[in-house]
Design a protein around this nucleic acid. Structure first.
Lengths: 175, 175
DNA sequence: TAAGATTGACAAATCAATCTTT
DNA sequence: AAAGATTGATTTGTCAATCTTA
């Protein structure tokens, strides 16, 4: 049999859902398509972001760390605070922070109150580089360009509903 | 300054969006929160799925390969067909297929018409294991449990809109 | 030339174990 | 004990280069 040209992902996901509805009628398969869209689309968006970040000498992982610190503003974040916001483990964050500190994009300053911890502070150069990369994401990122093609109602709806799901997943998250 | 308890992700994302709206008024930042939800939530869902897959001796990557083949049914897929559907590179797929073949969950049979390619066929054991893992995702997966808490309208809306975005990202995807 | 598949070098995530400080 | 941070072993992805066949 000649390999069929794959359907578009939305139709393909529903084929899978319907297949499993037939194979296992006792299962709830309503979550099937949106879950696959989340995983695959999340991966595609992250890959595109990584390409953009690398033009600035960063990875997407670097950019997420720097962006979270930029947004935190004057607030002093420790590694653990950052890991909670990014939903990654401390072990993943450690070498990244070391690398960004070596590149002089952030500084580790000892926390006064706790000798175990370090406060993380963005340098001027780190802030400038972060803003430049984020501006390019806004101008040339695939997601930004595709998102505006949705209707106003769809944009508002997906932003709100993804927020609800993200909040629920955040409550399930244990580092 | 004492580290502030992080807001819920939905509110936190909007703080970031508003920050960059202030820093760079020329930028469109409407995509900001939903893009972050996609990346972070996609990562959380994938990590949870990986935990479930490992109880069956699989990884999430294995499960996605096996699931795609299960859904394809009688159709013979080659590695390249699979890579296109999963939006990963052939290089990532190669060692995975080799591993699954060693575990006797799928077989590689030479393609009659093309000596470069192999057709991939799920074994009986592979199909059984795939269905068992997917049933457990439906019963105990965090996403499945959270998704049903949404309203009927929100479930339908997000499934449809994620499908639109996934289709657009798929058209941008070049392997 | 291009397509299917594979390999090697690298990046980034997980878990488990460890060290220091609370 | 428990919390903050780090290191080592393993997995999976990318890109670049290579080999064979179309």
């Amino acid at each position: 049999m000649a390999p069929r040209k794959p359907l578009n992902p939305a139709a393909e996901a529903d084929v899978g859902r319907d297949f499993y509805a037939g194979v296992a009628p006792d299962l709830d398969v309503g979550f099937f398509s949106p879950m696959w869209h989340l995983i695959s689309l999340g991966h595609l968006v992250a890959t595109d972001l990584d390409r953009i970040a690398r033009r600035h000498g960063l990875s997407i992982a670097d950019l997420l760390v720097l962006g979270a610190m930029r947004i935190a503003g004057p607030e002093r974040l420790r590694a653990t605070d950052l890991a909670l916001r990014l939903h990654i483990t401390n072990a993943a964050l450690s070498p990244r922070i070391a690398r960004l500190a070596r590149a002089k994009l952030l500084e580790r300053v000892p926390t006064a109150a706790d000798k175990r911890a370090h406060d993380l502070v963005l340098t001027e150069e780190g802030a400038v580089k972060t803003d430049a990369a984020i501006a390019e994401v806004s101008r040339t990122g695939q997601f930004a360009r595709n998102f505006v093609k949705l209707s106003d109602a769809d944009r508002a709806g997906i932003a709100r509903t993804l927020g609800l799901l993200h909040d629920m997943a955040d409550r399930d998250f244990v580092p």
